[in-house]
Simulated scan of single mutants.
Amino acid sequence: MPARRLRIEGRVQGVGYRDWALREATRLGLHGWVRNLRDGAVEVLAAGEPGALQDFVTACRRGPALARVDRIEETLAEAPTEPGFRRLPTR
């Protein structure tokens, strides 16, 4: 199962980005997690069917209505071992 790790920068904390990402990932049937980083970025690990994963990455470039995404760093990753998609504590 393909997986991607995303580091999303911009105005992405305090605007509902994590909850939005959780809903989008769940809607697309992806597995993984989302969390805030102490430097103001949001980090996501997402895995699933290639088309759904690409749709998610594309959606993350827009984000929710109040967000402003300036940059996304995307890297290949190992798929998560746990099923489902969840929020993790800030790291």
Rank of each mutant, 00 (worst) to 15 (best):
G84T: 01
T81A: 14
R71S: 15
H31M: 10
L30N: 07
W33Q: 14
D39N: 07
R35F: 00
P2I: 08
A46I: 12
P83A: 14
G84F: 00
L45K: 07
V34C: 06
W20R: 10
A67Q: 12
P2D: 14
Y17R: 01
V69M: 12
R86W: 03
V44K: 06
L30C: 02
H31E: 15
G14A: 04
R62M: 11
G14W: 12
R86H: 13
G63F: 05
R23I: 05
T26W: 06
P50V: 03
R62D: 14
W20L: 06
R27F: 05
A46M: 10
L66N: 08
L6Q: 12
R91E: 15
A46V: 13
V69Q: 12
A65I: 08
G32V: 09
A46H: 04
G51K: 13
V57G: 03
D19R: 11
G48M: 11
V12L: 07
T90G: 10
P83N: 09
V12A: 05
A47D: 08
P50L: 09
L30G: 02
R61Q: 15
P80T: 06
T81R: 14
E9L: 06
R62I: 13
Q13V: 03
A3W: 06
A79K: 02
R86L: 03
C60D: 09
R62V: 14
T90M: 13
N36F: 00
V69P: 13
R11F: 00
R61T: 12
I72P: 11
V42D: 12
P89V: 02
A77Q: 00
L53N: 07
M1L: 14
P64F: 01
D39I: 00
A46Y: 04
R86K: 03
W33D: 10
G29V: 05
L88F: 01
P80N: 10
G48Y: 05
R7Y: 11
L66C: 05
R5M: 11
L88Y: 08
V57D: 09
R35K: 09
D70H: 00
L53M: 00
L37G: 07
W33K: 08
G10K: 02
